[in-house]
Write a protein that binds this DNA or RNA. Structure first.
Lengths: 334, 334
DNA sequence: ATGAAAGCGCTAACAT
DNA sequence: ATGTTAGCGCTTTCAT
């Protein structure tokens, strides 16, 4: 038996306005006795306000969308958790969507979120896509991007990672340990992440006066399969190398595996450094040295930024950009 | 500039009723020419219906809640993905919530979901809780439970895993390989999962005429830390054992690590079998033999079941129960 | 085949 | 300090 605000008003013998005001803490002008009475009845009767009706008039749903490629990809659960934690703190709910980095699905989801009238969207991708996306403008929903550099009217903020600096640290570490012929296996160079990391790789090499050699760059995808394939290619091509810097941990882990299967010792023969610091990184043998991305924080900050934008109704600020630092986790593979 | 159904009606020179009917495929009585015209205008003008308004009258939001302990726990991303895939197929959105298995948070979220008027809730837990939960009845939302055995008016279905059979297979496998003194390290025995697995463990032992010895049972939590702790206890107590069957993979992986650090070879000295088959299981050294839970399927089936219940308005069926089978993944640790 | 109108439950401007 | 009332955008019953 569903109660409405009307029922509460009747039971408390006041008008629905009064009830509404009390429920929304707009009760400067309500007498304490009335407030108490109403509150008591609300509690006793187990009344649940209908957000639909409220949203219809207030034009906000206290819900935000989270679009990611795939929650089952070990990179995203932490990020999602960070996002949800902040949202929950602020009284928002999160609708999550998996796009598999597929443009059609992205459009479909943006549409769905627009229909559900989410107040804003946090958009994270893994790689791949580069161009602009018209559907961003669907329904004019404020958007905060994670790790994706892209312009649109509705993009109100970005949360990025300092890929250049992170990669620089990782490669420099390898160099410091004495490795000299360092291969870079990474995802597609169309992605801003891969490009940033490549720049960091180059910077470190330069600092050590080591010539940049294109044959040492293997760009494919941010996937285990690519790590295996790239390592095999390297071995087949007979390129001399003593270390591998990987675009992410999935690649690094499969590279280690492939190399070990071929009889190499890690880190004695070949040093390996990854990027991300997924949970697995500290569980493999040898434990993986890697550049840690602050995933939880990225999700958390993105939602924080979004909510700030949402609730700062008046001021039409500049687009905000947050750049997070990475951290080198030195373990056993280097 | 937001368009409403009224704008479309005006532009098409028809009534809003007509537009509404066409949009909802209740167009038996609409002339094809009108339909086409309206559809064209809808498309051209980029009209997005306001779900809030619709939900207010239809009493359904096409949104369901997913409550889990922690998306960052490797058990849940796959499950969440399965749930979201099915939901998306059926035109539903998913709001996800992390409770950390904390009762207060659960209540808070159930409340939030009730306010947001989700059509139903899928509820998965990890362990721990046993008693009933009054707030389940908040807002009378249909619930489907995953892996949790609990009664309530609103629980319309359950998706369970055959824990007994799974554990039986795992332990029998160890026995078949010649191991005889098998320790069982698992989560709290208050959880139905741990109890089911214990029963399976006992059944296998019995079949091999091996006496059940309580000192071989270590019940703590489904966490890495407990795996380390339990393995150390075992070593300290000087109990003779040649195999460990673990309540989940997190425990198994940390047990392997602890044992290896103490100089044991896996699987030569000690065989280890886990439960779950999380991604990490096939990446550790040695690769973990484990009982695979169909996580993706659990999420998928749960949402499927829930939607079936939601859309079968009339018939007040029995509570439905789906029991999924596990699969033994034989790898290198046994 | 189409339209008029009531009403879903709530907020907010305006009265009193 | 409290109440009246007009919508928010849509679906649905009942007319025509």
């Amino acid at each position: 038996m569903k109660l409405t605000i009307k029922d509460i008003a009747r039971m408390a013998e006041v008008s629905i306005t009064t009830v509404s005001m009390i429920l929304n803490n707009k009760d400067e002008n309500i007498s304490p006795s009335t407030r108490e009475k109403v509150l008591r009845i609300v509690k006793e009767s187990n009344y649940i306000p209908n957000t639909m009706a409220r949203s219809l008039v207030t034009r906000q749903t206290k819900t935000i969308g989270l679009i990611i490629p795939d929650i089952a990809n070990p990179f995203f659960p932490e990020l999602a958790r960070g996002a949800e934690d902040k949202a929950s703190e602020a009284g928002y709910g999160i609708i999550f969507c998996n796009t598999d980095d597929d443009i059609e699905k992205e459009e479909k989801y943006i549409n769905m979120l627009a229909e559900k009238m989410v107040d804003g969207i946090v958009f994270a991708h893994s790689a791949k896509r580069t161009g602009d996306l018209a559907s961003y403008d669907r329904g004019n929903i404020p958007i905060v991007l994670i790790d994706r550099d892209m312009e649109s009217e509705n993009v109100k903020g970005k949360v990025l990672v300092n890929n250049l600096e992170g990669a620089y640290q990782g490669v420099k570490h390898l160099l410091d340990r004495g490795y000299r012929r360092i291969v870079f296996i990474t995802g597609a160079l169309t992605s801003t992440t891969a490009m940033g990391r490549l720049a960091g790789y180059q910077k470190a090499l330069q600092e050590y006066n080591i010539a940049y050699d294109e044959r040492y760059i293997k760009a494919g995808q941010y996937k285990s399969e690519w790590g295996i394939e790239a390592a095999k290619q390297l071995l087949r091509e007979g390129i001399a190398f003593d270390a591998v810097f990987c675009g992410n941990d999935l690649i690094a882990i499969s590279v280690i595996k492939t190399l070990k299967d071929s009889g190499f010792s890690i880190p004695e023969d070949i040093g390996v450094v990854g990027f991300d610091d997924i949970q697995m990184a500290s569980m493999v043998e040898p434990e993986l040295t890697t550049v840690k991305q602050p995933n939880y924080e990225m999700g958390y900050k993105a939602v924080e930024l979004l909510i700030e934008v949402l609730e700062k109704h008046g001021t039409q600020e500049e687009q905000r950009k947050i750049i997070l630092d990475t951290e080198l986790m030195v373990r056993k593979s280097s």
